[in-house]
Design a protein around this nucleic acid. Structure first.
Lengths: 127, 127
DNA sequence: GCTATCCGTTTCCTTTAAGAAAGTAACTAT
DNA sequence: ATAGTTACTTTCTTAAAGGAAACGGATAGC
């Protein structure tokens, strides 16, 4: 058994938090969603081709699918412009702005982890 | 083209941040890692079977694999206890504690998203 | 008519992730 | 001797994700 005093402290809150965590992960799953969102944060509105260029390595099919999922979940808006040829702009919704803390936390952790791994390497190289 | 003024503001920083983001996502990919980490935050040290019970729905094979990956990336420690039968304890490393902001941000977003979706439903139901 | 651009879609294929079920090894209790 | 516990591993199968390449409709320019 796991420590009962901790488990019983707030079991319902904990369950709710796990569910919330799973909700978030479901929305943000996949290899590219965070990358797309980060680019939209950085550049504001972007067109399909811009996103294809900024999300290095993504194929149009995957980009299309990811954008559809993000739109379904009301995290991005899709706007068809009256240009010729037609262009389509994508932008974050106000709701998506609340993902920014997640992305920042991920980036910070990534940066820390990088330096940590680097230090381990130099320790190993240190004969 | 995407807005050049924003793009040229800090292109190298942006690239570094994208790489850091991808690093994080690589470490934390999969359906269960965040769930396992959250349980270790909540309960402290847990044994294999505890984790199987708290990560509802996980199979021993997947749990074993996820724990191995977390250990490889130095996010959890694995300790074999001198009990009979043998038990194995898992705990977070100091380094893993830096993931907590990520998890908290994910949970907060999940909670907000839940209430948002709820509101949308009640709006739709409002004839 | 030919070519190009933009925003996709379609088809096909490969890789990866995940789940179900059974087995293993070491030990204990009955 | 048999059954149970813990901590996995192994095997098999299925589902999901992802990539490559080609195609399509709309429009424009030459």
């Amino acid at each position: 058994m796991f420590p009962p005093e901790k488990c019983e402290q707030a079991p319902e809150q904990h369950k709710e938090r796990i569910l919330a965590l799973k909700d978030s992960l479901e929305l943000l799953s996949g290899k590219w969603k965070f990358c797309i969102l980060l680019n939209l944060y950085n550049y504001g509105t972007l067109r399909f081709k811009d996103l294809q260029q900024t999300s290095v390595g993504i194929t149009p099919k995957v980009l299309s699918k990811e954008l559809q999922e993000l739109e379904e979940n009301q995290l991005v808006t899709r706007t068809v412009n009256a240009t010729k040829p037609v262009t389509v702009s994508y932008a974050l919704t106000p709701h998506a702005i609340e993902i920014q803390p997640v992305i920042n936390a991920l980036i910070e952790f990534g940066l820390k982890h990088r330096t940590k791994i680097k230090n381990n390497w130099s320790q190993l190289a240190n004969q």
